[in-house]
């Protein structure tokens, strides 16, 4: 059994070597497809993370003008607490926000010139319904003490629209590319089958079973797919590490987040995705083009 498998592995390797250009094309296509797929998945995931950090659908965040004294802030909070449709009111004091911000800032040198805390106090209000969120937001925007108001519904809606777009567009692109990759693998296997039709015929005539004849081709396709997946994983992990070190800290909101990438996880899942693509492509091709009997 083991020996037979070794023989089949060697056969797969020989097939692959004879068709190395095709295999290269397979690997490349799979890699491109999976990089795109992985890229979109990670983008969607991060948009999701950003959305998580923003006010919820039933939250209103009020940024109080820095000139307003803390006592007035407390009065405002008490008023909010008393008003209808409000379930919770919380203060995020500017000192704490400032500390958090300084901690998350990668290079402290930029902030050295800023001794004063430029951040405002923030009042987070949780309402009982999304409708109340909207009316409350309108009310507090009229306050002279409020500098800016973020209401969850608005921001989140916009973000969700973006996320939805990314997700849908990414999904379509990724599915198309994945199909393309599987098709490439299938096609490469078809060419290999054609190139090896004499061997296949002889194998059949000396009594080889279909499984025995098919396996090398399936191994070949699966391997090509897996290599493509690993390449995609490596590419993506490298690219994201680069991004998170250079570009991302410059973007507001995103800079507050840790990039949640585990390179081995990304690489691993893309390798598995590649294997599945290769397996599917080669099985379909072998079933279709390997004439039996």
């Amino acid at each position: 059994m083991i020996f037979t498998f070794m023989f089949l592995l060697r056969e797969a390797w020989l097939n692959g070597f004879r068709q190395r250009l095709m295999i290269l094309a397979c690997v490349t296509t799979t890699a491109v497809a999976l990089t795109t797929l992985g890229g979109f998945a990670l983008l969607a995931w991060h948009v999701h993370l950003i959305a998580d950090a923003l006010p919820r659908r039933i939250e209103v965040h009020i940024f109080v003008r820095p000139t307003v004294p803390r006592t007035r802030v407390n009065e405002l909070m008490a008023a909010l607490q008393r008003s209808q449709g409000v379930s919770r009111v919380r203060l995020v004091p500017r000192e704490i926000a400032w500390q958090e911000f300084k901690k998350s800032w990668p290079g402290p040198d930029v902030l050295d010139g800023l001794n004063d805390n430029p951040l405002p106090d923030k009042i987070e209000v949780v309402t009982t319904s999304p409708d109340r969120t909207l009316t409350l937001a309108r009310e507090v925007r009229a306050w002279p003490e409020s500098e800016s108001v973020r209401d969850g519904a608005q921001v989140l809606q916009r973000l969700l629209a973006v996320a939805g777009f990314i997700r849908a567009g990414g999904l379509i692109a990724a599915v198309l590319l994945a199909l393309g990759a599987a098709w490439m693998v299938g096609n490469a296997i078809r060419l290999t089958l054609h190139a090896r039709r004499r061997d296949i015929r002889v194998m059949q005539l000396v009594g080889a079973t279909n499984a025995f004849i098919r396996l090398p081709f399936i191994i070949e396709g699966t391997t090509a797919g897996t290599i493509g997946g690993v390449l995609a994983g490596a590419l993506l992990a490298a690219g994201l590490t680069h991004l998170s070190n250079t570009l991302l800290p410059e973007i507001p909101l995103v800079s507050e987040l840790q990039l949640a990438i585990d390179p081995t996880l990304v690489g691993g899942s893309l390798a598995i995705a590649g294997a599945v693509l290769g397996l599917t492509g080669s099985i379909v091709s072998v079933r279709r083009y390997l004439t039996l009997d």
């Binding site: 015929r201 002889v202 059949q204 005539l205 000396v206 009594g207 080889a208 079973t209 279909n210 009997d293």
Partner: peptide
């Protein structure tokens, strides 16, 4: 078919 062919030895006209 494979088990049938395993019982047979065939010398093909064109060797193969």
């Amino acid at each position: 078919v494979p088990s049938l062919r395993r019982k047979l030895g065939v010398v093909f006209q064109d060797f193969r």
